[in-house]
Design a protein around this nucleic acid. Structure first.
Ligand SMILES: [Zn+2]
Ligand SMILES: [Zn+2]
Ligand SMILES: [Zn+2]
Ligand SMILES: [Zn+2]
Lengths: 138, 138
DNA sequence: TGTAGTGTCTCTAGTGACTAGAGGTTCAAG
DNA sequence: CTTGAACCTCTAGTCACTAGAGACACTACA
């Protein structure tokens, strides 16, 4: 049995975050000591590792809820799990696409000024004031 | 003179967002009609366009505040503006890097299951449970 | 001039996923 | 048995908005 602090160390999830996951229903309520402190078993550790891994991969709390729900029913179709993963992938790809456009624009903007001049003549400020100077969509 | 709704249409910034920018000090308080409604001039429109453009490029409200402050002092050095832009660029690059790692991992994970099986045998769920299956750092 | 309908006002609360702090209690080591 | 770290609950703050309530203002048309 682990205390919340031990669980935190083993999973690299901060203590308040663990309590937050419990409140959100991702973690089931663990046993308590007589003095009301949480005590976790291996199942709790595995559950939290799952959540941590999914969060690291960018899945939302809501998506993780669904995945955990599915995990609890071994005989159910896993179509929903694949759907969630595919949708997460397309989210990530959309974000990358958008950030790449921003990157190009920011390269142009920051190359345009070395910081040696004054505000009035600054290419950075001029570029922000006028989207027409932009080469890409964003 | 524009009403807040007209300003909203011209800049594609939603009305409550305009009020929020005012509250945050990005927009100076505009004139008011006798009935207390906001009325903007061209300067207000340009200011809001600047903010919109900077937000679209991912600059934080705080960064935009500094840029606007700088814009108000045409004779001051623009070093800070370049610094802000460069730092924004490196933020964007860091995000892209992270997302690319996630993308690779998510491709592997979602390719691993066609959704035809059951939860118990699902590669998506197995992958989330076990980071050892991952090919990349994240 | 009356009125209908849309726009605007302020204020409060909610979003997601935590994070920080206050004020109090429990645990484990020595 | 004492000390000090860890734990408890609860509230509020983060960022950049977004939604809604209830009241007031403006505009166009009859
Ligand atoms: Zn400059
Ligand atoms: Zn632009
Ligand atoms: Zn599957
Ligand atoms: Zn992994």
């Amino acid at each position: 049995m682990f205390s919340i602090g031990e669980l935190s160390k083993r999973t690299e999830v901060k203590v308040p975050t663990i309590r937050y996951y419990e409140e959100m229903g991702l973690l089931s309520e663990p046993e308590r000591t007589e003095g009301n402190q949480r005590r976790y078993d291996v199942a709790g550790l595995e559950r939290l590792s799952f959540i941590k891994h999914a969060r690291d991969l960018g899945f939302s709390i809501e998506a993780i809820s669904e995945l955990i729900e599915l995990q609890g029913h071994p005989d159910r179709s896993c179509q929903a799990a694949t759907d969630i993963a595919v949708s997460q992938l397309s989210d990530v790809r959309a974000k990358i696409k958008r950030l790449r456009a921003l990157e190009k624009e920011l390269v142009r903007i920051s190359k345009g000024c070395d910081g040696e001049g004054v505000s009035q003549d600054c290419y950075v400020l001029a570029s922000l004031a006028d989207h027409e100077l932009c080469r890409h969509e964003h």
